[in-house]
Write a protein that binds this DNA or RNA. Sequence first.
DNA 1: TATTGTTATACTCTATAACTATA
DNA 2: TATAGTTATAGAGTATAACAATA
Lengths: 144, 144
Amino acid sequence: MPIDDSEDVLLDGLVRSAFQIMGVLTRISAEHDLSLTQLRVLGILRDQRPRMSDLAAFLGLDKSTMSGLVDRAARRGLMTRAPNPADKRAVDVLITDAGRQLTERMYQEARTALAPATGRLDEQQRRQLAQLLQPVITPPPPLG
Amino acid sequence: MPIDDSEDVLLDGLVRSAFQIMGVLTRISAEHDLSLTQLRVLGILRDQRPRMSDLAAFLGLDKSTMSGLVDRAARRGLMTRAPNPADKRAVDVLITDAGRQLTERMYQEARTALAPATGRLDEQQRRQLAQLLQPVITPPPPLG
DNA sequence: TATTGTTATACTCTATAACTATA
DNA sequence: TATAGTTATAGAGTATAACAATA
């Protein structure tokens, strides 16, 4: 098995960039008294209304962890629960207006924080990078 | 401020790929009873011998958190402490042979786990993606 | 005085197990 | 019986504060 081939170099780059992005998102989350996972859930809820179990499965968390996470976010008025119309056992999770506003603010902060990094690429390179990342990103399994 | 411009699309791709990479690394860490941060530290120690305070600063952790993290890894024989030759206050952190072996195994597992994703690109695209990521990645501040 | 590191303490995040309600 | 969710409990990761040793 050859080392330092194109897969290794790519893996290294992906891992480094991932840690950098995560560092920024973790800092921004913390500045708003949120965990990274809560930030991620808010991002998902922007355009989905999943049930608890789907969220847990997608995030790789236990359902009990989901309960606690949504509890804490709900207590702060960022998410709410609603009964699922089709299954009386299920509970849907929704983002509130306040949650949506906070999410947009945090994503704006992320963009600002990463501007020095992404700004090292010109317009064409940015589009190219985004396109090359597309096939790498696992198509998210449908929620719900 | 225009939305959905090339910076937004790129940010979205970077964030998604980061969560995907982190998911893989978190799972692999957990399968070896390690935290993601411990995996990261092991990766750093492969070719550095930083002092506690430098590691903490680089990772954005408190020095007390560093103490605990190194404690737990040392208890498992993956890292060791050694006095810094130049500063009697300082403590260097070193990877052990066992730690190095485990680290290489985990990185191999990461490569395998991500092969389906990176495999969607051909050789030239992989090299191109790695090159485009390079300017985005913050040059790591020197440790020590 | 300032820096390096450890220890004591408290809080958050997480999973496991036991439980209730519904399918 | 199996699935969806909550609650009680325990372990790991984290930061703050107080401390000892060295610069």
